[in-house]
């Protein structure tokens, strides 16, 4: 049997200084970390040897320094996430799933939202937000294309053969249709606070004017 892993202390060889130094180098100064079968002999040597105690103190100083690195505690949110994945909290997608996982509400377990197996984690939340954002962008793009197609003949008459770049500052581009409405005055939606009446209703914000008073205010409509 390996001398370092005896089933009990009966076959323990006498402790030498060399072996004690090996124990201290590997496990540090805490005797409860030493191999069980060698612990008593090592402690006996420590009682009788000043050199052994000096070596032990040296190892203890490194232990103390290592103990400075404290790990953060598990957050309450993590405990909730872990319990949400527990067998009795798993979603009952159908009778067969319920049978497999023994779904049933526990007496002290709140019924948490039904979720999949690898859930509530950070990656899941990021993926969900990304998917929602992508869906929103897609819908907005589809709406813009539909409006463009509806106004296309009128726009082409206005723009004629002029290069597209020349239209950038005239607000005649077809997408301006998104800002215009025959029945809705967009200036009504501007905030009353921080906005003052101007030539075009309320096209200027006080903050903008304070920041760059020398820059001419742009007209909203040509």
């Amino acid at each position: 049997m390996d001398r370092r892993t005896p089933a009990d202390g009966s076959a323990t060889p006498p402790m030498t200084m060399e072996r004690l130094i090996e124990l201290l180098d590997a496990y540090g100064a805490r005797s409860e970390q030493w191999p069980f079968g060698e612990r008593a002999a090592a402690l006996a040597l420590l009682r009788h040897s000043a050199e052994a105690r000096a070596r032990r103190d040296e190892a203890a100083r490194l232990d103390t320094v290592l103990d400075q690195a404290v790990a953060p505690a598990a957050s309450p949110e993590l405990l909730a996430r872990v319990l949400a994945t527990a067998p009795s909290s798993r979603p009952a997608a159908g009778p067969e799933r319920r049978d497999r996982t023994h779904d049933r509400p526990g007496p002290s377990e709140p019924l948490l939202p039904a979720r999949g197996r690898r859930l509530p984690g950070r990656r899941w939340r990021v993926a969900a937000a990304t998917s929602l954002a992508a869906a929103g962008v897609s819908l907005a793009a589809a709406a813009a294309v539909m409006l463009w197609l509806a106004r296309a003949p009128e726009v082409s008459e206005q723009a004629g053969a002029a290069p597209a770049l020349a239209m950038l500052d005239t607000y005649d581009a077809p997408t301006d249709a998104l800002l215009e409405s025959d029945s809705l005055d967009l200036t009504d939606a501007l905030p009353a606070l921080g906005c003052r009446d101007g030539e075009w209703g309320c096209p200027e914000l006080d903050a903008v004017e304070e920041r760059s008073s020398t820059v001419p205010t742009r007209r909203i409509h040509a």
Binding site: A71, L79, V82, L83, A86, G106
Partner: peptide, 25 residues
């Protein structure tokens, strides 16, 4: 836990979760 006992799940999580987070950290 294997029989779907929610109380046992909570007890095991509360007993071991902090130590496992420390290890992973």
């Amino acid at each position: 836990v294997g029989a779907g006992d929610a109380v046992a799940c909570r007890e095991l999580a509360e007993r071991h979760l902090h130590r496992i987070v420390s290890l992973a950290y």
